[in-house]
Design a protein around this nucleic acid. Structure first.
Lengths: 151, 151
DNA sequence: ACCGATCGTTGAAAATGTCAATGAGTTATT
DNA sequence: AATAACTCATTGACATTTTCAACGATCGGT
């Protein structure tokens, strides 16, 4: 509630450059990322570890490989993230049901608790970051992004 | 032209997780980034240096500080990027017109040439990456992203 | 039983991100 | 006119993230 946050439109946004979707995506992503990480700091989480925890809480019983694919991260990064969360007692690795190579990442009760509180903080973050968009614009943005990704 | 690129919808995209705009943004960005960098490799450029070159060619006469703000990069990263481009004779630093502290980044004729060819490659990239979206959906996505950024 | 592929893991190298400090130049205050 | 506070580009140090190649264990097909 710090008064009005004047959104400054930089001079460079005038040019055709600002029609480059990749650039827009990058900017929005950079801003959101910094924002999210700040909000998650009080929980000892970062965007990445939050996403992993989130999926571990989803009931989807994700495999580490699935996490890597879905989060667009290298498998080795998932190892590091899960190591950290596991070391803090927030998730556990369980052997895959049908394939003993794979490991399913599950949240512990404590992980569920932390996720619950962190999730509300994230929701506020998202609402604030996209406050310039009307609710229907927001859902339409979601739809477009999903379509771009998965058709 | 390797036949049909079946877009696989991962199992995890089913959950509520896939409504997280930050996550969608991150995924789309990661995919696009890899794609763009591969396409730019033949020009000896990366996404970053291409963006700088692009703005140097825009006629907007960007200051290094403006580049940093607009591209959401630390000023020191701009220095490195411009150093590289300048060393290859693609851009030059010119003293600011009114403020002698600032340096304007301008493309050399050779920079313009390289940019021209790289730009068409990037256009193809973007078209391919968003082939799942109809033209009007694409412009609507652009509009929403810009609105989210600058109101 | 064998062969090629996949999963998680490790470790190293490259790229990026973050931060503090500095000299030159500007603006504001007095 | 002199000073103080601030901004710009730059440097260098450091952490984080990304990218790759390898490896043991396991799986699937033959």
């Amino acid at each position: 509630m710090s008064g009005h946050d004047e959104v400054v439109i930089p001079r460079l946004a005038e040019g055709a450059v600002a029609n480059d979707i990749g650039l827009l995506l990058a900017k929005l992503r950079a801003a959101g990322s910094e924002f999210n990480n700040k909000a998650l700091a009080e929980f000892g989480l970062r965007e990445r570890s939050y996403s992993v925890l989130r999926l571990a809480c989803s009931g989807l019983e994700p495999t580490q490989r699935e996490l890597a694919d879905f989060l667009a991260l290298d498998p080795s990064q998932i190892v590091a993230l899960v190591d950290d969360l596991e070391g803090r007692g927030l998730v556990s690795r369980e052997q895959g049901r049908t394939d003993r190579r794979q490991k399913i990442v599950l949240a512990t009760p404590e992980g569920e608790r932390l996720h619950a509180t962190a999730e509300t903080a994230m929701r506020e973050c998202e609402a604030e970051q996209f406050s310039a968009l009307a609710p229907d614009e927001l859902t339409s943005l979601r739809t477009l992004l999903r379509k771009a990704l998965w058709g």
